[in-house]
Computed example of a mutant assay.
Amino acid sequence: MQPFQRLTAPACPLPYANIDTDQLIPARFMKRSRAEGYGGYLLHDMRFTSTGTEIADFPLNRTPSRNALIIVARRNFGAGSSREAAVYALVDYGIRCVIAPSFGDIFASNSVNNGLLPAKVDEGDGEALIRLLQETNAELTVDLEAQTISAKGSSVPFAIDPVWRTKLLNGWDDIDITLSQADAIARFREEDSLIRPWVTPRIREGAGQTTM
Rank of each mutant, 00 (worst) to 15 (best):
G80C: 06
S81C: 05
S82R: 10
R83N: 01
R83L: 03
A86F: 07
A86Y: 11
L90R: 11
D92R: 00
D92K: 01
D92W: 02
Y93T: 00
G94V: 00
G94R: 02
R96H: 11
R96M: 12
C97N: 00
C97Q: 11
C97L: 05
V98P: 03
I99M: 08
A100K: 01
A100I: 06
P101K: 00
S102I: 06
S102Q: 01
D105H: 15
I106T: 05
I106Q: 04
I106H: 03
F107Q: 08
A108C: 14
A108G: 15
N110Q: 13
N110G: 10
S111C: 14
N113F: 05
N113I: 09
N114A: 06
G115D: 13
G115S: 14
G115L: 09
G115Q: 13
L117T: 13
L117F: 15
L117M: 15
P118R: 14
K120G: 08
V121D: 00
V121K: 00
D122A: 04
E123Q: 05
E123F: 01
G124T: 12
D125S: 15
G126F: 04
G126K: 03
E127A: 15
E127Q: 15
A128K: 14
A128F: 09
L129H: 11
L129Q: 02
L129R: 05
I130L: 15
R131T: 06
L133E: 06
L133V: 13
Q134G: 09
E135M: 07
T136M: 10
T136C: 04
N137A: 14
E139T: 05
E139A: 07
L140W: 05
D143Y: 01
D143P: 01
D143A: 03
D143K: 03
L144A: 00
L144W: 08
E145G: 01
A146P: 05
A146C: 02
Q147D: 03
Q147A: 11
I149H: 12
S150A: 14
A151H: 09
K152H: 10
K152G: 10
K152T: 04
K152I: 07
G153Y: 02
G153V: 04
S154Y: 13
S155R: 11
S155M: 08
V156T: 08
P157F: 03
P157M: 06
P157D: 05
A159Y: 09
A159H: 14
I160N: 08
I160C: 13
D161A: 12
D161G: 10
W164A: 15
R165H: 13
R165E: 06
R165F: 14
R165G: 09
T166G: 07
K167G: 00
L168S: 09
L168Y: 05
L169Q: 13
N170C: 02
N170R: 04
G171M: 03
W172S: 01
D173Y: 00
I175S: 02
I177N: 08
T178Q: 02
T178N: 04
L179G: 01
L179R: 11
Q181C: 06
D183M: 06
A184T: 09
A184I: 07
I185K: 12
I185M: 10
A186T: 10
A186N: 06
R187M: 13
R189Q: 15
E190K: 14
E190Y: 09
E191S: 14
E191F: 12
S193Y: 06
S193R: 15
L194Y: 10
L194A: 14
I195S: 12
P197V: 03
P197M: 06
W198C: 08
W198M: 11
V199K: 14
T200H: 13
P201C: 12
P201H: 10
